[in-house]
């Protein structure tokens, strides 16, 4: 169990703010952090990892005190049992995948953990490649595996899937969930994607301007997923900025939805399509 109580100034695009929050994290829980950018999500992760020392704060991890600014206790990242996956992966460019993984192995650590992780995230083929030779999804898998080599208790994921397209995202979500269960992790995931949060998180916290705006189970906060309903596609309507709107008929009503790239949708007028309306 993790108990954190943190206060730290934030410098955001909208001016100065303050990150001020207290929360608990249970063992084995997967917590999602969401909210507008500049809300303090990444700052919070960095404080948990020990990369940033907050102005004031206390973090208790099980029976270990990680941080207590009033008692001048601050464990360095090396002394905390954390694994972190960065938004841009932060793989070491001068090492191959295998070397990246081996680098993370603590002194006297057993090599079997690496073999196990390589199997879990299916890296066997990529072991001798350099990070520059990998796709985004492959790099992400390596970063995830590397963060787990040290067998951390707390896994921190900073928007790990934001740069990937949706089929790849779905697969990587499964990898993360699988690792979360297999290695009995407590995980904090920063994500903007409500689908992702619904699929993965046990609990979510929405941060706004450094404070907890909402907290609770994803289902209660985001609403249950509504069932899919059939609709009839009518036409595309181009917008000025290159995107377009699709008009659909849904039970006697015409509704419009924004479409990013209509080339990917091979819809013809009159065709039946499935829509899901989220709250």
């Amino acid at each position: 169990m993790i108990q954190a109580d943190i206060s730290h100034p934030l410098h955001t695009a909208s001016g100065r703010g303050k990150l001020e929050l207290a929360f608990q994290l249970h063992q084995g829980e997967l917590l999602a952090l969401s909210g507008p950018s500049g809300g303090g999500k990444t700052t919070l992760l960095r404080i948990l990892a020990g990369l940033l020392v907050p102005q004031q704060g206390k973090i208790q991890f099980q029976d270990q005190l990680w941080l207590d600014t009033s008692a001048r206790i601050r464990l360095r990242p090396q002394e905390r049992q954390v694994g972190m996956v960065f938004q841009d992966y932060a793989l070491f460019p001068h090492m191959t995948v295998a070397q990246n993984l081996r680098y993370a192995l603590p002194k006297g650590g057993r090599h079997t953990i690496i073999d196990e992780l390589v199997q879990t995230v299916e890296l066997e083929e990529l072991l001798h490649r350099y990070p520059q030779q990998l796709s985004g999804g492959q790099q992400q898998r390596v970063a995830l595996a590397r963060a787990l080599v040290r067998r951390p208790s707390l896994l921190l994921l900073d928007e790990p899937l934001s740069a990937l397209d949706s089929p790849m995202r779905a697969r990587l979500q499964d990898y993360i969930l699988h690792a979360h269960r297999t290695f009995e992790l407590t995980t904090v995931l920063v994500s903007h994607d409500y689908q992702e949060i619904r699929k993965m998180a046990h609990r979510m916290i929405r941060l706004e301007n450094g404070r907890i705006a909402e907290e609770g189970a994803p289902e209660t906060l985001l609403g249950k997923r509504s069932p899919r309903t059939p609709a009839e596609f009518l036409r595309f309507e181009p917008l000025h900025d290159g995107r377009c709107i699709a008009w659909l008929r849904l039970e006697d009503q015409e509704i419009s939805i924004p479409i990013l790239d209509k080339e990917k949708l091979h819809w013809t007028p009159g065709q039946k399509v499935w829509v899901r309306i989220d709250g």
Partner: peptide, 10 residues
């Protein structure tokens, strides 16, 4: 974050 990644790897 190369440096930070290395720190979080202990």
């Amino acid at each position: 974050n190369l440096k930070e990644a290395s720190y979080t790897l202990g």
